[in-house]
Amino acid sequence: MDKGTPSSALPTCAISLNINGTNRVLDIHPWVTLLDLLRGPMELTGTKKGCDHGQCGACTVLIDGERVNACLKLAVSIDGAEITTIEGLGTPQDMHPMQKAFVEHDAFQCGYCTAGQICSAVGLVAEGRAHSRAEIRELMSGNLCRCGAYTNIADAIEHVLDQEGVTPLREAAE
């Protein structure tokens, strides 16, 4: 069994999670958030902490395929779930199409919000509800980017949507 958090006198709970395809059985304190679990004991630091309060989207991961803010999720409450983080989408050598599109369109500057943006964008594509530029913007508004890469992020996502061909982009309804 993996050690979830440093030992102490306080009670722990056993949970199992599938993280990026690997099953993990963990013994954790109930107050540990999914974000702190990933970044700490799981050493998956690709997922970022930008606020720790659901206000920025930097911590976005996919839980059972849906994009969610990891910072407000107690890990105990998602026992049995499948988690995909940025590390699970692709590697520098073998990038996910969304990751490639982000590089190509310079959809980041400092790169700190980027993991959250990409996980969110992958969730958005899977949801299949973004059919226009305006919809991309609105449905990506849960991911703040202080570097202001928004227009490039929208370009990258549009590119992937076009490529996938599943949801042809209609003219922006502006």
Binding site: T45, P92, Q99, F102, V103, G111
Partner: peptide
């Protein structure tokens, strides 16, 4: 040119100040 550090940043491999350390 695309950023040469781009692949690291989009894959979560770029390490920022709080990403170091481990156990």
């Amino acid at each position: 040119l695309s950023r040469i550090d781009g692949p690291l940043k989009v894959s979560g491999s770029a390490k920022y100040a709080a990403d170091h350390g481990g156990h």
